[in-house]
């Protein structure tokens, strides 16, 4: 089996192990399940209020603000529960990346079909000799790419964590409000 295929499998196994640990440490606990149910119910109520047009608009606005504050508080509580889990998963990732570096260090595992910009070269060239071609690809880069892709897919398929909700920052979703144009 090629180095590339080994790394892809390793990154999948690491992502699956991280998800399993998250399940046993956090997701299956009664407190987390309660918070998840509460969040889903409140998000449904918020969507209903936001789409409603009948009734007093001031009262509706007040209800929307209360629901949004409740959602923020629930997410904060859930994040508090996830701290221990996040630390465990981070330690696992660091240990596996260290292992990957020692297993594949010094050799190129793939050929990049593009020349990476200098900012990313420290990642795509990690552990490779300085005089190797710019299109040589390090094991760390493949492992991290695999981790990002598999983590997202497992999140979607298993849906064990909190619903995503509005996680994008406001400067992405509504930049006009930030710069005061609205």
């Amino acid at each position: 089996m090629s180095d590339f295929a080994q790394l892809v499998i390793l990154s999948f196994l690491t992502s699956a192990a991280s998800e399993a640990i998250s399940y046993f440490v956090v997701y299956r606990t009664e407190r987390f399940q309660q918070l998840k149910q509460k969040l889903i119910a409140n998000e449904a109520k918020l969507a209903e209020e936001q789409s409603a047009t009948a009734g007093n608009s001031n009262k509706r606005q007040k209800r929307i603000e209360n629901l949004e504050a409740g959602l923020k508080a629930t997410r904060r509580d859930a994040q508090g529960l996830q701290i221990r889990n996040t630390l465990i998963v981070a330690v696992i990732q660091v240990v596996v990346i260290y292992q990957v570096n020692s297993m594949f260090g010094g050799r190129s595992v793939a050929t990049l079909p593009f020349e990476p910009i200098s900012v990313f070269r420290s990642l795509t060239h990690r552990g490779l000799p300085d005089d190797s071609p710019a299109t040589d690809c390090s094991a760390t880069f493949v492992f991290i790419l695999g981790g990002l892709a598999f983590k997202a897919v497992l999140d979607r398929v298993l849906q064990l964590g909190m619903p995503k909700g509005n996680q994008l920052p406001k400067w992405v979703t509504n930049p006009e409000e930030i710069v005061g144009m609205k």
Binding site: A110, P113, C137
Partner: peptide, 10 residues
């Protein structure tokens, strides 16, 4: 990126 690099290398 992962798929492109993998297939390109192969």
């Amino acid at each position: 990126t992962l798929t492109w690099i993998g297939v390109y290398t192969a």
